[in-house]
Design a protein around this nucleic acid. Sequence first.
DNA 1: CTGGGCTCCTGTCAGC
DNA 2: TGCTGACAGGAGCCCA
Length: 291
Amino acid sequence: MPELPEVEVTRRSVAGGLLDARVLEVRMGLPLRWPLGREPHTLAGCVCGDIARRGKYLWLPLSRGVDESTEHLPGLPAKASTAAGGLLIHLGMSGALSFGQAPLQRAPHEHFRLVTDRGDLWLIDPRRFGAVVWSTAVDAGPAARLLGGLGLEPFDAAFTGAHLHAALQRRRVAVKTALLAGDIVVGAGNIYACEALFAAGIDPRTRSDAIGRLRAERLATAIRATLSKAVALGGSTLRDFRDAHGLAGAFQAEAAVYGRAGLPCLACATPIRRIVQAQRSTFFCPRCQRR
DNA sequence: CTGGGCTCCTGTCAGC
DNA sequence: TGCTGACAGGAGCCCA
């Protein structure tokens, strides 16, 4: 589910509540995609920093604090938490964060819970493709390994039509497959890649190295426009997605092609087609989108 | 190195 | 009503 807009909406909805919150306890449920990589109890006492986003990952910095829950002898100082680093969080296909109050009717799918003095943060993830991974720094250890291969942020000034064009020239896969790979530009998943290609008037089957400079420019603009509109609408809620306060997104109602197979194109009334590319559904208008 | 396919897991829905 | 198969927002990993 969660593509860049959903992850960004999630980030914004938890940032204020988590900042400066002191971790009291960490509870784990069923295994997620990867292990936490650290004993949960060693995180008690850490203080949450400003949560950041990189692609579809969230990075929650944790600074060293004092573990007040740890038993210690009278007269001796409270045991300092040994942890300093952060948590890299990915929502996978079906994940959502919830902050403050217990999520409703999700009990079997609560697989991670950060108990803090400002409220609790839950990861609800039925399919468990999501992950919460400890890393000593965002640019070291497991986080560096997972973030290392990512492409540019779509709103980074370096992500230009020229950059996209040059990157697409180096590939021979279909342009939609190249966008989904996430090593050129991050954030556009299956929904937004389809929508951006529609907005740019490009057939998703077009070989990436056949995209000219002008169309690459249009595609870069369309990716940014599609993603920013989706963020403004609170993301897309197809099934599971909610922000941390339980609010659903509204972009799904604005989708021009995604999930609209057989329905008339909003621009030309030609039936929207569904095909499969790299094991993922692709939706497009065969008339508005050209090779 | 590139590209294609498989895989993790649960839930939902269409069709019989 | 109940069973079966297809499909779902991601992306790392293995193989040719």
